[in-house]
């Protein structure tokens, strides 16, 4: 039997199919977000099932997560990203104790108990300044792709200081820095440091390692180092960081299928 996890994010819709017994990943995929998330999710699940040599009927349980989770008609349950990330990371990195998840529009810090259950979490879902959005604004202004930020930041010798809390005004700062001759690599370093610092502020003083960095922003070159520097602690990037939330949702679907209690609303 197969279970599906659907993560309806702000930029991408992710699906992971797992074997309900072994929890092995059978297939996974990503599509850009659109207007009809329900249809997108349905199409992606079907496509992945076919690719894996399965039929849609083989998918026996679906859990949806992410900001658009309640729009997914095929979902048997909706569970928040906090819980799904915890389950997904726990599956990949069983010893994880802290999760830093930076997505396109929000960022979270989740503390896990020794048994992997969520002990506490902090979210920034109001301010774009500590999220991938800020990096997108930066990349647009510099006329580069997000994937190129890493090679740029590697050349930085003196990161610029970005002072504004608000990414809208911070964009003005970037323009100002460029106009004053600040090197693009220093601006990139400054912005990445600013995003990482905002996340570190959520963390407070007490963090338990291992710290796992996940979410789409973990894929952006340079961000791992920036978060490491801001926290002054080693940070591990989760395997396939974009997919860990959907993976957690799929695992939770499998748990539900087995009859285990899960924290679903």
């Amino acid at each position: 039997m197969i279970c599906a996890g659907v993560d309806v994010g702000s930029r991408m819709l992710k699906v992971v199919l797992v074997d309900a017994e072994s929890l092995a990943v059978v297939a996974s995929g990503v599509v850009d977000e659109g207007i009809d998330q329900d249809a997108l999710a349905t199409q992606l699940v079907e496509r992945l099932a076919v690719q894996a040599g399965l039929r849609r009927d083989d998918v026996h349980a679906v859990v949806a997560t992410g900001y658009g989770r309640k729009l997914i008609g095929m979902a048997d349950a909706t569970i928040t990203e906090v819980t799904c990330q915890a389950w997904g990371i726990r599956h990949r990195v069983p010893e994880a104790r802290t999760i830093i998840d930076i997505g396109g529009q929000d960022s979270k810090l989740v503390r896990l108990k020794p048994d992997g259950a969520v002990a506490d979490f902090v979210m920034n879902d109001r301010c774009a300044a500590g999220t991938g959005r800020f990096l997108e604004v930066l990349a647009t202004r510099l006329g580069v792709k997000l994937t190129c930020l890493g090679s740029l930041v590697a050349q930085s010798r003196k990161p610029a200081t970005i002072s504004n809390m608000c990414v809208v005004f911070a964009e003005t700062e970037i323009i100002g820095l460029l106009a004053s001759g600040t090197l693009p690599e220093d601006i990139v370093a400054g912005v990445q440091a600013s995003v990482a610092t905002r996340v570190a502020a959520m963390a407070g003083r007490h963090l338990t390692e291992p710290i796992i960095f996940t979410g789409g922003v973990a894929l952006v070159p340079g961000m791992e180092a920036a978060v490491h520097s801001a926290l002054d602690r080693p940070v591990l990037v989760a395997p396939q960081p974009q997919m860990t939330c959907a993976l957690g949702a799929a695992i939770l679907a499998a748990e539900r299928l087995r009859g285990s209690r899960t924290p679903a609303c």
């Binding site: 610029a160 002072s163 504004n164 005004f169 700062e173 100002g176 820095l177 004053s180 600040t182 400054g190």
Partner: peptide, 11 residues
């Protein structure tokens, strides 16, 4: 006026 104004000096 924040503690470092370099980046907003033009404004």
């Amino acid at each position: 006026v924040p503690p470092i104004t370099d980046s907003i000096e033009p404004a």
